[in-house]
Design a protein around this nucleic acid. Structure first.
Lengths: 372, 372
DNA sequence: CCATCTAGTGAATCAGGGC
DNA sequence: AGCCCTGATTCACTAGATG
């Protein structure tokens, strides 16, 4: 079982790796106490420096529980950059020459992280986009829904060789086509989300195990050492243990260590368990009518008609239709012109082509084939 | 029709904007010749690849020395950073205070671009992932398929207000759910891909019109000025013209200007009716609650209730409400009786009419219809 | 036990105009 | 710059209660 290492680690160098342990202390101090070139992979989820100001309320007036922890506060970009440089330098020292590093972030910090990584000498192998299947909406309707986070995957240097990439395993996991740089995964919620003694979320930014599963499966071998310098609720350790990898966790705060330790102790690594994110075919993907216009399949100004030609409407640039004074989606306008309560615009509207009526649903099927 | 402006632009400042023209010259020189705070949106597709060091020029048009083995990595990054800083500074000068900028890149350069943008003072609104539905595979099987590119969308400064985001049009284009930060679109191929006289692709990195369509639709209004400092094959100009926006293109190389000009000349702009797009309540004229009283739609002394009848208030002659000791506007009283931080009184308050609850917003809509 | 409804929540740089 | 007022705004999913 994993056990906690006291903070004496700060002052004295460790001769051996604290395998499968959570080391308490500042990440740079602890990293500097570890032997150089000793770990295979680093996964880091550093503070994002979100710079949130006022409270945010949902349309129903409930307050959004934002990340207001002190560990996410920095006085300036310069302070954040210094912090970033220091931990990245320390991380690079303990990484084997054949090792790779993953760092996750959002637009608040990822450009600064990537800039620093490249300057230090890390060589970017991929940037990976975690597309959240269920992100939080933009409640005020002021921007695009912030629906993804970015991971940078890098080797130790430009000419580093011998790092692990389990190409075939990734391909097998992805229906026998190459795993892409965009991963669709749900956020961490429900029973997976750890709670503290008061029933509140134990950590503000707990990552889903499915994310770490793919990270560890792709870039490590069983028995490898995975180090996480911002261990938090311990997702990295939990998945590493489950998959037969060794972990090293570094975390400053006792409350997080307590939660993570309990979580990891409860994991049985012998189970040949299939994690809860299957790659099975989803239901047919939703295709917005607007995307047909962007793709040039339907042109703004085109006239759509019902199959019998009785009703017609003109396509606007934003994918809505206009028919006399009626404006709205293909479904809304289809319903209104008929005086019907509802209408499936995809099957109702047609394009007249050389005297023949062609359903716009044909285009939707083309886009679906294209997406897959 | 658009026409080419000779490179005299380099030395003499232009008093007027070269609307719907392609200006030949170095991007920084031309930008500096334009009046400040004059364009609404900038879309920039700068050179990506730090490996293509031969193609890298400093803003003064001098060529960056070929990188020998003696050069360390950082020095070549430094040259790119300088180039990036200079064109971004020049771009920021010509951008209106209410303007926004889009910059597209890949993991090779996007971190350096984002870092520079934040340092200069641009405020990131979103990072947008262009998820390619048909990317080039990773032939050697050594990494994840590089299947996306990243765009940074930013306002001119942290506190900039008044920039355009057509939230409702984006929502309409996306089947009436908020447009997300990940966009699934195919790469530019087939007939859309421009060819030169020899039948080869005219530009190495031609962007699909679908991408610019969404960029321009989301962040500009008809009649706005869209500037592209790396015009290339002219996708930005082509889509801008089609959508009834003005463009300014800057391009150094004659062969690209020739291709782009021919492309744009062939485009017919869309008619106004089609250019109309979905606008939300924010665009509707403001109707004071007091005007409903003046028009006799609501009478002083009437009792307003919330939809469930739990809260009530009485209308006073000046258009304010009173509920026990709470007095104020429909919004203020609505918020206070609920103990909520804010309230839209128009949708909160109702009138009970023969047992049915009718929102007072119905009256506002009548007034608005009346005004038109 | 199943179906249905209600409440809650997630790394968020989340308003705009007038004075 | 700062204050004040009006008034616009949410998606996917889970858990638990209710019928």
């Amino acid at each position: 079982m994993a056990s906690k290492v006291k903070s004496t680690a700060r002052s004295s160098a460790m001769s051996e790796l604290p395998l499968n342990k959570i080391v308490q202390g500042s990440c740079v101090d602890v990293l500097n106490s570890l032997p150089e070139k000793s770990v295979d992979v680093i996964f880091a989820d550093p503070p994002y420096n979100l710079q949130l100001k006022d409270d945010l309320h949902r349309p129903d007036n409930s307050k959004v529980d934002a990340v207001t922890d002190k560990w996410d506060q920095f006085s300036s970009f310069a302070a954040y950059d210094q912090f970033t440089n220091e931990w990245l330098e320390a991380a690079r020292r303990v990484l084997k020459d054949t090792g790779t590093i993953w760092v996750i972030g959002s637009y608040h910090n990822i450009f600064r992280v990537g800039y620093s990584m490249q300057n230090i000498g890390f060589w970017v192998l991929n940037d990976i986009v975690w597309r959240k299947s269920n992100p939080m909406p933009n409640f005020k309707g002021t921007r695009f829904t912030n629906a993804h986070e970015t991971m940078i995957w890098a080797s130790k240097s430009e000419n580093a060789k011998g790092f692990t990439f389990n190409y075939d395993a990734m391909k097998a996991m992805n229906d026998d086509t190459q795993m892409r740089s965009d991963w669709v995964l749900p956020i961490c919620a429900g029973k997976e989300r750890l709670q503290d003694d008061e029933g509140k979320k134990a950590h503000a930014t707990q990552k889903p195990e499915a994310l770490l599963y793919r990270v560890i499966m792709s870039s490590t071998k069983p028995g490898d050492v995975v180090l996480d310098p911002f261990f938090g609720s311990g997702t990295t350790g939990a998945v590493a243990k489950k998959l037969g990898r060794n972990f090293i966790g570094i975390e400053r705060e006792s409350r997080y260590i307590k939660v993570a330790q309990k979580r990891i102790d409860a994991i049985n690594p012998l189970e040949d368990e299939v994690l809860g994110y299957t790659q099975g075919k989803r239901a047919a993907p939703r295709v917005p009518f607007g995307s047909l216009i962007e793709r040039g399949m339907i042109k703004p100004g085109m006239v759509l008609k019902c199959s019998k030609g009785k009703y017609s409407a003109k396509v606007r640039t934003d994918g809505t239709l206009v028919s006399d004074d009626v404006k709205g989606s293909i479904h809304q306008v289809g319903a209104k012109v008929q005086g019907a309560p509802a209408c499936n615009g995809w099957t109702f509207w047609h394009i007249e082509n050389e005297g023949q009526m062609m359903s716009i649903d044909v285009f939707r099927q083309q886009v679906r084939a294209d997406i897959n």
